Amino acid sequence: MVESRRQRMQALLAADRAARPASSVILACERCVVELSVSGAGATVLSRLANGAAPPSRGLVHATDAVSAGLEDLQLTVGEGPCLDAFESGGPVLIADLAAESARWPAFTRSACELGAAAVFSFPLQIGVVRLGSLDLYRDAAGPLTRLELADALILSDLAAQGVVADLDGHSAEDGSWLADPHEEVHQATGMVQVQLGSSTETALMRLRGYAFAHDLQLVEVARQVVGRSLRFTDAEDGNNAQ
């Protein structure tokens, strides 16, 4: 049965590609919305430094709607959520009722619910033992995936992972330079805050995240203020606007 469903998904993606040429990752995300009764889908590539000390660096490959894009950005801002857990564990993270997960992800859950997510499902994008990122789905109403929807989600995440490998085009899995990183300003701002505080990269990113969360801003907006020099961090508990 699994093989027949896989063949069906491959045929659907081939038909989608014939109708509108696009990356396999994009087509897999859009097919998730059609086949799995979810409200939106997104795919993110993640990579971890060799020492494993810092959080994974990330780049959004595709999001089917604004909520999916917002959920991906939120997880970068607060440093927690199903995408990161799926990447770390190598297994799916299936949350049928997100509102009940406030203890697991205290920062992510509240804001994700406000964005409109009531259920979230994340699947690692993985080839063999190499993890490349995650395929992330959400519903605007609570409820689990059915057995067949889960089977199809696993197939689509596998096909999306193959698409990521094709898009790598000669780059290693740890090299995200091939991907247009929408959070480039975050990396630049992290370096600037690191210099301002004389701290580690991890501490600088933590301060950026903390400021974003405390002021109900996206991390990229705080980074933009730092890069634009309208926000400067000192040894005080919070950042201070530079004059």
Rank of each mutant, 00 (worst) to 15 (best):
A103V: 06
T64D: 09
G210M: 04
A189K: 01
L168S: 10
R139H: 10
R207M: 11
S68T: 10
G81Q: 03
S172R: 12
V120R: 04
L148G: 07
V186N: 00
A117H: 06
V61Y: 03
D238Y: 05
A66H: 12
L137I: 02
D136W: 07
Q126T: 15
D175M: 13
V164D: 03
A242Q: 12
A160E: 05
E72Y: 04
Y138E: 01
D169Q: 15
L60K: 05
Q10G: 08
R20Y: 13
F123R: 07
R58G: 07
M206T: 09
G163W: 00
S23Q: 04
A63Y: 10
Q162S: 14
F233M: 02
S157G: 11
V78I: 01
C29V: 02
Q162Y: 09
M1F: 12
T203H: 15
C29A: 04
D235S: 15
S37Y: 05
A119F: 05
R6A: 14
L148R: 07
G198Q: 06
A11W: 07
T201R: 10
L94Q: 06
A112S: 05
V45I: 02
A66I: 14
A119D: 03
E114Q: 13
A161N: 06
P21W: 11
S68A: 15
D16A: 15
L49N: 15
V220Y: 01
S39D: 14
S23A: 07
N241Q: 13
A166R: 12
L125M: 05
E3H: 13
G163I: 00
R139N: 09
S157C: 04
G42A: 14
L179C: 15
L84D: 03
L36I: 02
P144R: 01
L94H: 06
D175G: 13
M1L: 13
V226R: 01
M206W: 07
R209N: 01
A180H: 10
Y138I: 00
V45L: 02
S89D: 11
D158Y: 08
F108W: 08
